[in-house]
Deep mutational scan, measured.
Amino acid sequence: LTVHVGNVTYHFDNPEQAEEWAKRMAKKYQGQIHVKDGQFRIE
């Protein structure tokens, strides 16, 4: 699973971990989480 934050990409084996990280990053950067094809993108 991949989480994109700006132009930085993080890889996770565990979906719960990826989702948790995406939520934390979205809160930190006050962005929206977009989920597409098993990838999380924070914008």
Score class of each variant (00 low, 15 high):
residue 7 N to D: 07
residue 37 D to A: 02
residue 36 K to G: 07
residue 9 T to F: 07
residue 3 V to F: 04
residue 29 Y to C: 15
residue 21 W to P: 00
residue 35 V to A: 04
residue 18 A to S: 01
residue 5 V to H: 06
residue 34 H to L: 13
residue 7 N to A: 10
residue 20 E to V: 07
residue 19 E to K: 11
residue 23 K to S: 05
residue 33 I to E: 02
residue 3 V to N: 00
residue 13 D to T: 12
residue 14 N to E: 07
residue 25 M to N: 01
residue 35 V to F: 15
residue 18 A to D: 00
residue 34 H to M: 12
residue 25 M to G: 00
residue 10 Y to K: 02
residue 5 V to Y: 08
residue 19 E to M: 14
residue 34 H to Q: 11
residue 19 E to Y: 15
residue 10 Y to V: 03
residue 41 R to M: 14
residue 29 Y to M: 07
residue 27 K to T: 10
residue 31 G to I: 13
residue 34 H to W: 08
residue 24 R to Q: 09
residue 2 T to R: 08
residue 28 K to S: 03
residue 42 I to V: 10
residue 14 N to D: 13
residue 31 G to T: 09
residue 3 V to Y: 02
residue 6 G to F: 13
residue 29 Y to W: 11
residue 37 D to L: 05
residue 3 V to D: 00
residue 39 Q to F: 05
residue 27 K to Q: 11
residue 21 W to V: 01
residue 15 P to D: 05
residue 9 T to S: 07
residue 9 T to C: 14
residue 14 N to S: 11
residue 26 A to E: 01
residue 10 Y to R: 05
residue 2 T to M: 09
residue 8 V to Y: 13
residue 26 A to H: 03
residue 6 G to N: 12
residue 16 E to D: 10
residue 15 P to K: 13
residue 16 E to K: 13
residue 6 G to Y: 09
residue 23 K to T: 06
residue 30 Q to W: 06
residue 25 M to F: 08
residue 4 H to T: 14
residue 43 E to S: 07
residue 41 R to I: 15
residue 35 V to G: 03
residue 5 V to D: 02
residue 17 Q to Y: 09
residue 4 H to N: 06
residue 42 I to S: 04
residue 7 N to Q: 09
residue 9 T to G: 02
residue 10 Y to D: 00
residue 13 D to W: 07
residue 5 V to R: 02
residue 2 T to I: 10
residue 24 R to V: 10
residue 11 H to S: 08
residue 19 E to I: 14
residue 39 Q to N: 11
residue 30 Q to E: 06
residue 25 M to C: 14
residue 9 T to R: 08
residue 1 L to P: 12
residue 34 H to F: 14
residue 43 E to R: 07
residue 19 E to L: 15
residue 12 F to I: 00
residue 9 T to W: 06
residue 22 A to S: 02
residue 38 G to N: 07
residue 20 E to K: 13
residue 14 N to V: 07
residue 11 H to R: 10
residue 38 G to M: 03
residue 35 V to E: 05
residue 34 H to I: 15
residue 10 Y to L: 04
residue 33 I to H: 03
residue 40 F to V: 09
residue 17 Q to N: 07
residue 35 V to C: 15
residue 1 L to T: 14
residue 16 E to P: 02
residue 28 K to F: 11
residue 42 I to T: 04
residue 11 H to N: 06
residue 10 Y to T: 01
residue 9 T to I: 14
residue 41 R to C: 15
residue 33 I to N: 03
residue 41 R to S: 10
residue 2 T to L: 11
residue 43 E to V: 14
residue 22 A to I: 07
residue 21 W to T: 00
residue 27 K to A: 13
residue 13 D to Q: 10
residue 21 W to S: 00
residue 41 R to W: 15
residue 20 E to G: 05
residue 25 M to K: 01
residue 30 Q to K: 14
residue 6 G to V: 03
residue 32 Q to P: 04
residue 15 P to F: 14
residue 28 K to C: 15
residue 13 D to G: 07
residue 24 R to E: 08
residue 2 T to F: 10
residue 28 K to N: 02
residue 43 E to C: 15
residue 26 A to N: 03
residue 16 E to S: 10
residue 6 G to K: 05
residue 10 Y to S: 00
residue 4 H to R: 13
residue 12 F to A: 00
residue 35 V to D: 03
residue 37 D to P: 00
residue 13 D to H: 07
residue 14 N to L: 10
residue 7 N to P: 08
residue 23 K to D: 03
residue 22 A to H: 02
residue 42 I to A: 04
residue 26 A to M: 06
residue 39 Q to A: 12
residue 5 V to S: 02
residue 36 K to F: 13
residue 20 E to W: 14
residue 27 K to M: 13
residue 23 K to A: 06
residue 43 E to G: 06
residue 15 P to T: 10
residue 18 A to C: 10
residue 30 Q to S: 11
residue 17 Q to A: 13
residue 28 K to P: 01
residue 4 H to D: 02
residue 19 E to N: 07
residue 43 E to W: 09
residue 19 E to C: 15
residue 1 L to I: 12
residue 12 F to P: 00
residue 40 F to W: 14
residue 16 E to L: 11
residue 27 K to H: 09
residue 1 L to Y: 15
residue 12 F to L: 01
residue 1 L to N: 14
residue 17 Q to K: 11
residue 31 G to R: 04
residue 14 N to T: 13
residue 28 K to Y: 12
residue 4 H to M: 13
residue 12 F to Y: 01
residue 3 V to K: 01
residue 39 Q to D: 11
residue 18 A to P: 00
residue 26 A to P: 00
residue 25 M to R: 01
residue 22 A to K: 02
residue 41 R to G: 06
residue 28 K to M: 09
residue 13 D to M: 08
residue 39 Q to K: 06
residue 39 Q to Y: 07
residue 23 K to G: 04
residue 2 T to Y: 10
residue 5 V to F: 12
residue 42 I to L: 03
residue 33 I to D: 03
residue 8 V to I: 12
residue 42 I to N: 04
residue 29 Y to H: 06
residue 23 K to I: 13
residue 28 K to R: 13
residue 27 K to R: 13
residue 36 K to P: 03
residue 16 E to M: 11
residue 25 M to H: 02
residue 4 H to K: 11
residue 4 H to V: 14
residue 38 G to K: 03
residue 26 A to S: 05
residue 14 N to R: 08
residue 7 N to G: 12
residue 41 R to K: 07
residue 23 K to W: 10
residue 13 D to Y: 06
residue 34 H to A: 09
residue 1 L to Q: 08
residue 12 F to Q: 00
residue 25 M to Q: 03
residue 43 E to F: 12
residue 43 E to H: 08
residue 20 E to H: 07
residue 34 H to T: 14
residue 19 E to D: 04
residue 12 F to D: 00
residue 23 K to Y: 11
residue 33 I to Q: 02
residue 29 Y to R: 02
residue 36 K to W: 11
residue 21 W to D: 00
residue 12 F to V: 00
residue 5 V to K: 01
residue 22 A to D: 00
residue 41 R to L: 14
residue 29 Y to A: 02
residue 42 I to M: 01
residue 9 T to V: 14
residue 40 F to T: 05
residue 14 N to G: 04
residue 30 Q to Y: 07
residue 24 R to A: 11
residue 39 Q to V: 10
residue 1 L to S: 14
residue 35 V to R: 04
residue 29 Y to T: 05
residue 21 W to E: 01
residue 41 R to D: 07
residue 6 G to S: 05
residue 1 L to R: 12
residue 8 V to G: 02
residue 6 G to R: 06
residue 29 Y to L: 12
residue 17 Q to D: 13
residue 31 G to K: 06
residue 26 A to R: 04
residue 13 D to K: 11
residue 19 E to R: 12
residue 13 D to N: 12
residue 38 G to F: 05
residue 7 N to F: 11
residue 41 R to Y: 15
residue 6 G to W: 09
residue 24 R to G: 03
residue 17 Q to C: 15
residue 2 T to D: 06
residue 22 A to L: 07
residue 5 V to L: 09
residue 26 A to L: 06
residue 19 E to S: 07
residue 17 Q to R: 10
